[in-house]
Amino acid sequence: MAEVVTKGVGRVERTADRAEVQASFETVGSTRDEAVERLTARIAAVEPALGRSGVEVRSRQLNVHDNWDGKRRSGSRAAQNYVLRVDDPAELDGLLGALVTAEPTWLNGPTWQLKEDAEAVREAQREAVRDARRRAEGYAQALGVRLGPLLRLTDGDAEGWAVESSHRMLAAGYGGSPGVPPQVDQLNLEAQQITVTVRCTASWTLLD
Rank of each mutant, 00 (worst) to 15 (best):
D69H: 02
T111S: 15
G51I: 12
V196G: 06
S177L: 14
E20Y: 09
R199K: 10
V9E: 11
Q193D: 10
R18F: 01
P104W: 00
D88C: 03
A23P: 00
E190Y: 02
P182M: 03
L153F: 07
V163W: 02
A19D: 09
E13M: 06
L147E: 07
L92T: 04
D33W: 13
A35Y: 09
S166C: 08
T201S: 13
L150D: 10
A102M: 09
R85I: 05
A79K: 11
R32W: 05
E34N: 12
L153I: 12
D117T: 13
A158P: 00
S59T: 07
E123P: 07
R122P: 00
T105H: 05
A142M: 08
Q80H: 04
L170Q: 11
W161P: 04
L62F: 10
E91M: 11
V64H: 12
S59Y: 03
A98L: 01
T111A: 15
R134E: 14
E47F: 06
S165D: 15
R146H: 10
L189Q: 05
A16N: 12
G75Y: 07
L84P: 06
T205V: 12
V21E: 05
S165R: 15
Y174E: 14
R152S: 13
S24W: 00
A118K: 13
R134N: 12
R134V: 06
E127H: 02
Q125M: 10
S76F: 07
